[in-house]
Each structure stands twice: as structure tokens, then as C-alpha cells.
Design a protein around this nucleic acid. Structure first.
Ligand SMILES: [Mn+2]
Ligand SMILES: [Mn+2]
Ligand SMILES: [Mn+2]
Ligand SMILES: [Mn+2]
Lengths: 223, 223
DNA sequence: TCAACCATTTAGACTAGTCTAAACATTTCT
DNA sequence: AGAAATGTTTAGACTAGTCTAAATGGTTGA
């Protein structure tokens, strides 16, 4: 059994791995977990002892298969609880993350599979992120950042690459939500802002930072 | 904000209070929380410092209003989550307690009231215990132990006074559930066992210990 | 190549919670 | 009343997790 702290570390390492192919750095983990590098080092030693990770001093850390398994299980729980909070309890997508951050650590053999069934085995969470099934398998979505579209392109918003309240509330405000249709009207090289039409209605100017954090695709995500 | 450990202590003190009108004893708390008396003493000092309880060395402890408030809030959360687990996820009444023991500590301003609404504002949990409303108010049920009925009495099972898996699974086995109709056919002074008919069907002999832990009333509990 | 800089680890301290063993109160019994 | 038994608190130690400050490794670039 793992403590919720251990689970959060493994999850953080898992999420950082793609950006650090030959070892996630201590400082990167410290940043996402909002803790100090020295605390991270302590935990890395412990997780290494326990066989969850491969840790070489000063070189960074990679997940062992068993560590990845734990991470994926926690992510599955997190995202299923997010679906529950959004669909059944009507929370908005900026409110669910911090509650799910706690719920993901509830321990029970059956709970999460029953919740999965109750929710109808959803494939994506309210932020568009894929939900691993009980065997840890999930689709990698082939999406692209909104900033990489060309003028004239039409796309569907399928995910966000940033989960802060500020960002999500902003999108909610301008009615830019999961599934929204986005037409690229114009792009301005000067500040890399993009003019788009949302759902065939309002035209709006989006900043470079915004466009970098919105994932779109030309096909709708399957269920 | 309170740690989940503090919450569990306050809840334990609250539940023990009726049996210890002039101060809950250290050893009683240690027993229900499955910890050592010395650990309890440490926590009592801390809770006293913080103003949640009134603690006099060697004399036992009583709740301050603020401590009772916390306890009732935790109990509300526990019982609402139990309803969710039983009604929505089809867990049986012997499985829900230990999961709710964790869920009761989830921190969120809105979560529990939304869950309450989603469940239709239930008044009783799957064990027949009353659920405090958002103001901490709840009906005290005027029930009686099955062992105190007389031959010929007819009653409805409205609660259990013991929450162990063994006890609840036993009741489930003999189809003695919340709402069951119980007719007292005979009582035997020798070992205080009681012969009953359940729901007008099977006759069965119940042990003294069983009868002591079943709450019944002549009226059905309201919704 | 070696000095300077930056990242990482170590050393040592702190908090929350727990335990065992010893000391101390309270109650009970003779 | 005094002694014995029982319950409670204290003392001191341990684990998990965190922090600051100091030491050390690695990297860059003059
Ligand atoms: Mn978490
Ligand atoms: Mn999410
Ligand atoms: Mn609990
Ligand atoms: Mn209950």
C-alpha cells in the first residue's frame, strides 16, 4: 500500500516523463508538487528503495513498470471522480480538479470499478483527458494545439493543456468548452494572436498563450 | 482546518458522550479508535488547546460547542457517502462503512451539500442512523431494542446498534434488513433467545446478543 | 582548463501522530 | 485507613514528511 504522498509523487513523475525522456529532474517534480527539492530527493530515495522508480543521483528518475502501474491507477481514479463531480453533481470544470486530487487517494478494491460502471465507462474526463480502463489501457489522443492551425481551418476543442482555475474560468466565460467548434478567421504574426469564430457565432481574439494551451482535432473524440 | 485524525477523535468523543455524561474516558476513546491510551492523552491535550473539548486530567472529556459542530459535520458526510455507496453503487450495508470512513474527510465547501441534493436529501443512512442536515439538525429516533419487545408484538427493523461486517452480513444472510417486519413468537428466559417471524414468512431463533443490537419501532421511519 | 554558477544532495531540525515503559492518580477492597 | 489494583499521564523514542542551510556535483564558458 502507498501513502497518498507517494501516489502524488509517482503521478507527477509519470506526467513529467514525456518531457524528460532520459530522467525527470528533481526540480521539475518540486515545481509541480509545490515542494522543495530537498524533500523530493528524500522521497526519490524512498521510492527507489521500494522499487517504484529508477533513481540515479544527479541524473533524474524514470519509472519502473510497477511505479507506472500505480501512477496510471491514480490517474484513472482522479479522472473518473472528475466525471462524477461534473456530470452528477454539476460542478464546473475549474472546480473538480482539487476535489479529485483528494478523492483519487480513497482506498477500496471495488469502488472505482463500480463508479466507472455507474458513469457508463466514460473514455474522457471533463478536460478531455483520456481515462485508463481497469487494465490501465487508454487511447493516446492525436490532437494539436490551436496555435498550429492555419487560417480557414475548422476544428473541435478536445482538451486543455493547463488546468488552473484562472484558465478554465476564462474559457468558460467566452463559451469555449469541450466540443466547441472553432474556425480560424485570421492569425496575426505580430503577437501571435488568433481571431476565431466559436460555434458559428461570436468572433473573438485569442492570445498566443491561450492558443498554446488549447487542444483541437478535426474529428470529434469518440464517446 | 482539522486533520482527519482530529476529526476521527471528535467523532468518537461525540458518539461516546451519551454513555459518559460526565466525561468520556481516555480508555473508551482508545478502544473505539483502536489506539493506545497514551496516544489519546496526547490528542486530548491538543484538542483542548484548540478549544474543541473540555479536558480535565484523569476526569475525562466533554465536547465544546465548536467540537460538537465538527463531529456532526463529519457524521453528516459519513452517512451521506454511505447512502451514495449503497444506493448508487450497489454496495451492501456491511461494505460501506470503511469506505465512508475515508470519504468523510474529503474537504470541499460545496461537495457535501450537492451530494445531499443529488441523493434527494435522505433522512437516514443504510444502517438506519439519522443524517444531520446542513445546519446540523436531525431527528433523534425513538426506537427500542428488539430484546425489549413482548411476545405478540409486531415491529419494524429501523436500525442496528453494531456496525461490524460479521454482524451485518449475518443479518443479510437471514434476510433481516432495514424495514423488515418482525413478529415476536416466543421468548426463552433460559438464554434470552427470541423466536421471531420475519416478513410473515420464515420463523427463526435469534440470540440474545443479536436482539440487543437490533433497533425496532412500531412505526415506519419517515422517508 | 579551471573558475563560477546552478542544480542537487546531505545534515540537522521540526511537526503530527504513534508506541512502550515508567510514574502517578483514583478507586476499590481488606 | 492503608494497600492493591486499575486507569491515566508523562517521558522518551520512532516514522513520515517537510524545511533551511551547507556541502557537493555537473556544466558552461573565459
Ligand atoms: Mn492527490
Ligand atoms: Mn482532468
Ligand atoms: Mn474517518
Ligand atoms: Mn452508517
Amino acid at each position: 500500500m502507498n501513502s497518498s504522498t507517494e501516489e502524488d509523487y509517482l503521478k507527477a513523475i509519470y506526467k513529467l516523463s514525456p518531457k524528460f525522456p532520459d530522467g525527470v529532474l528533481t526540480s521539475a517534480i518540486a515545481e509541480v508538487l509545490e515542494t522543495k527539492a530537498s524533500s523530493v530527493t528524500d522521497m526519490l530515495k524512498k521510492l527507489s528503495e521500494k522499487g517504484y522508480i529508477n533513481y540515479v543521483k544527479y541524473q533524474g528518475v524514470t519509472l519502473q513498470p510497477i511505479g507506472e502501474e500505480v501512477a496510471i491507477r491514480v490517474i484513472r481514479k482522479h479522472r473518473l471522480w472528475e466525471v462524477f463531480l461534473a456530470e452528477k453533481l454539476d460542478f464546473t470544470w475549474d472546480e473538480i480538479h482539487e476535489i479529485a486530487e483528494q478523492l483519487e487517494h480513497i482506498v477500496s478494491v471495488n469502488l472505482i470499478d463500480r463508479l466507472d460502471k455507474y458513469l457508463g465507462f466514460p473514455k474522457f474526463d471533463p478536460h478531455g483527458d483520456p481515462i485508463p480502463d481497469k487494465n490501465g489501457k487508454f487511447q493516446k489522443i492525436k490532437d494539436v494545439a490551436l496555435r498550429d492551425l492555419n487560417v480557414g481551418d475548422i476544428a473541435i476543442l478536445v482538451g486543455v493543456r493547463e488546468h488552473s482555475k484562472e484558465f478554465l474560468q476564462y474559457l468558460e466565460n467566452i463559451k469555449l468548452l469541450l466540443g466547441s467548434k472553432i474556425e480560424v478567421i485570421n492569425k496575426f504574426a505580430f503577437d501571435e494572436s488568433v481571431l476565431v469564430r466559436i460555434n458559428g457565432k461570436s468572433e473573438i481574439m485569442l492570445s498566443s498563450l491561450l492558443c498554446k494551451n488549447i487542444s483541437v482535432t478535426h474529428e470529434k473524440p469518440k464517446k
